[in-house]
Structures are given as C-alpha cells and as structure tokens.
Design a protein around this nucleic acid. Structure first.
Lengths: 137, 137
DNA sequence: ATAAATCCTTTCCTGGAGAAAGCAAAAAAC
DNA sequence: GTTTTTTGCTTTCTCCAGGAAAGGATTTAT
C-alpha cells in the first residue's frame, strides 16, 4: 500500500507541505508528476488528512498550555465528548487507560481562562491539572 | 501587531494551508495580493512557523498513542531533554508543574516498541503511562 | 504469447503567486 | 492646518508550479 518512497514523501511534507513537487522529486528520484500522482493517491486514500499551519502560540497569547486528566463522575460520555469537540481551547482529547478516563491538552490565554475551563469541566468529572512550564518539543 | 483580519486568515490556514490566497481574500474581503502580503509578514515575524501535513497515523501503523508522565530520578535534565528531542516516537514533550516533571506524548507501532521506549526512559526516571484507547480530537 | 494494469515520463496549458507600480488613507512632522 | 512620510491596498504583468493528457516501460494476469 505505502512503499518506502511514499514514506519519504510524507516525511518531507511533514517538514514543509508547501515544498514543490519537483524538489520532492529530486530527493526521491522521481519527476514532479510522479510525486503529484503519489500525493493525490495518498490524499484520496486518506493517509493524508489535510494541510495545516504551525503557529507560534506565544505570539497569539495562547501562552498557557496544560494537560488535564479527567476522572468522570457521570456516565454520560457522549455529552462530554461533544463538549470537548466544540470547545476551542481543547487541542487534543483522548480516552485513556490507566489512571483517569480522558487526557486533554488545552491551550488558553490566561489563568483566568483556565479556571473558567475547569469550572465547565466540573459538571462532568474531576480533574488533575499539569501546566506546561516549558516546551521541549 | 495582529489585527482581526490576520486572525481570520490564520484560522483559514489552520483548516487548510493550501487554500488559495484569492479564496482567502474573498472571505476576509481583500485581494489575493493583500492576503499574500499579510501572510509573508506573519511568516517573517514568526507567528507562522511552518506548514505541515496531517496524517492518519492508524494507516501508518503508528497505532499506539500514549501520554507519559515522567518523575525524574536524576537531576540531569539536559541529557534527558536531548534524548526527547532526538527520539522519533516523542511527539510532544513539556516540562510541567503539578505531579511529575515532564509530560510526553508518544506514538509507536506496538506494545513492544512502547516497552522498549519505557526501558530507555527508566535510566532517567520513573513514569506513569496513559495509553490512548480512543481519539476524540 | 497476449492482454490488462500499473506507474512512470514527457509535453502542453492554465492559472496561482510574486514583483512592480500606482493609489489612497492614515500617521507623523513641521 | 498643511505638508510629508508611511502604511497597506489594488491593479497589472510575468513566470513557473501543478494538473491533464498522451505515450512508454514494466509487471501481473490469462
């Protein structure tokens, strides 16, 4: 399904998806056309889900990153999942095994916004907060 | 520094950074040129850090996602941070307040790879593992 | 051995993006 | 209050990246 060349292409796209097909082709020893074909195929197949931009969140004042472990109080997971999906502060949300039910990654502007967020979480469950004090990666 | 139009543009780019400037312009009521200028400015300023691709990790057999909290045993954080930076399985790594010292997000192919990873972590510290059993977001 | 499918290259053409010039409005200087 | 400068937009023009189509090589099926 995906050969080594495809994986190389994906790696290049991950580092810069605006890279020109011809330049990608030079790396993987193909013409731009062949690269284009492979990429379309991967888009169509669903391996490539989309193209996005990496932002410096600090400059956007989204300075507060936190990981939040949720311990559900209610059994109404559907409503909670909907809440997560619709909430702009939630960057990631995974159901987890181990301690807790969900692990969230959120990003907000201020301590106050964090408080507000946690308040709104409270009706679904309890939480453990780990605030990021430095991004390594 | 960034006005409302810039933020709208960023939002559009986040949903699809290959969107054509003219189409973006239609949304924010500008010509493609003006949009292009604004984007160049934001790239130059550093708000836009890069362009990347969203992949379906499941199709790449990177099926196992986990959040790992690290409790350092040693005080040699530098070496550990270097380890994190160089390790391909580590998607995110943040120093945290609260319980633990670091929060990692990793992605591997198998339970075995997870074991290997945890083994290599052990020389730096102890860990708590939360394996993702479902991605909500 | 022939037919079909796959994946590549080559060629051609369209249209997006960048550069340059010109314009208008706001900000700064006097 | 008028002039000058700056800023950010539009318009115009040009070039090249990307998509489409056609043709060829290699592999798979019959």
């Amino acid at each position: 399904m995906l050969d080594n060349t495809d994986l190389k292409i994906l790696k290049l796209l991950k580092s810069n998806c605006k890279m020109q097909f011809r330049d990608i082709g030079e790396v993987v020893h193909l013409t731009g056309q062949a690269v284009s074909n492979r990429i379309s195929r991967m888009e169509h197949f669903g391996v490539i889900k989309g193209y996005t931009v990496l932002l410096d969140e600090k400059m956007l004042n989204k300075s507060l990153t936190a990981y939040i472990t949720i311990f559900m109080k209610t059994t109404n997971h559907e409503v909670f999942c909907e809440f997560l999906s619709n909430n702009e502060s939630v960057l990631e949300a995974n159901r987890i095994s181990g301690e807790g039910c969900y692990m969230l990654k959120i990003q907000v502007n201020s301590q106050e916004d964090l408080n507000d967020f946690l308040d709104s979480v409270l009706k679904y469950g309890n939480y453990r907060v780990n605030i990021s004090i430095g991004k390594i990666k």
